[in-house]
Write a protein that binds this DNA or RNA. Structure first.
Lengths: 144, 144
DNA sequence: TCGATTTCAGTCGTACACGACATAAAACAT
DNA sequence: ATGTTTTATGTCGTGTACGACTGAAATCGA
């Protein structure tokens, strides 16, 4: 039995599990809104700045375009966004919020704090603050 | 623009991204072995203790059985495990390593350290140590 | 300027991940 | 003992994720 092969010694497993469980904790909120976690991330990006090409959204999420494209197509079917041909660069597809997509920001604005309250039951806000730079360095380092 | 809705203020997005990027960093190693990241986790569990029912594996990974079952079926097709009916409780399916599955432990034993060396290029080993209890508390709290 | 290269978005195939549901077997209650 | 409930596993449908690849458009290079 190699010590380094124990599941409990794997940082990666903890990250993978924590990410899934937190996404799961968002579940009830997203169900109400009729969206999923990755769709929520796309909305966050578009609420910050509307009308972005697929590529910018994908890069921001560190996802491949072949993941983001179907995701956006589903969001378009649900009436949250539209995808219009770029005028300057016709290869691009510019993703724009619909009125329904814009309106959802009001519905979503309390979600982070409610989730935060849930999380802080288990870990202190200070610990939470400490984790952020660590994850940022990790992400930056593995970005490729 | 609600401050709490900025992507950069979301802990969850960092966890989600870090988990995906680390799993991606494992990619080349797994490709050599012909397995995936979740399959690797199952192998870790079985290398610790062979012959476990589906449910124990699922609980250990915090996954649903309807995720683990197909995963095990694929691993069976690849000749890494067998799934035999439980003798005490015939509802159970006991998952057993094949010789190929056991042999893979030798092939995998250096992966964690090699990955660790990669990660430590970007974050110190101390920071890494500090993150573990945080993630454990988070996971325990959200376990449900 | 025009052929080679790169970039943008997309399709396709495979593998998770999970909610809803199904089925059989074990455990429980009366 | 037998009907009810719970448990273990599984199927099915939907939605990510990503590698390999494609087609069209922009860019680059000689």
């Amino acid at each position: 039995m190699y010590e380094q092969l124990k599941l409990d010694n794997q940082l990666c497993f903890r990250l993978y599990t924590a990410a899934r469980l937190i996404a799961g904790a968002y579940g009830p909120y997203f169900e109400t809104l009729g969206i999923t976690y990755p769709q929520y991330l796309v909305l966050l990006i578009l609420w910050e700045k509307d009308q972005q090409p697929v590529n910018d959204i994908a890069k921001r999420l560190y996802l491949e375009t072949n993941t983001v494209t179907p995701l956006l197509q589903r969001m378009e079917r649900q009436g949250l966004v539209t995808r219009v041909k770029g005028e300057v660069d016709t290869r691009q597809r510019i993703v724009c919020l619909t009125e329904a997509g814009k309106a959802m920001e009001e519905q979503a604005k309390d979600i982070p704090n409610q989730l935060g309250a849930e999380v802080v039951k288990h870990v202190s806000a200070d610990e939470l603050k400490g984790i952020i730079p660590f994850l940022d360095k990790l992400i930056e380092g593995l970005r490729d």
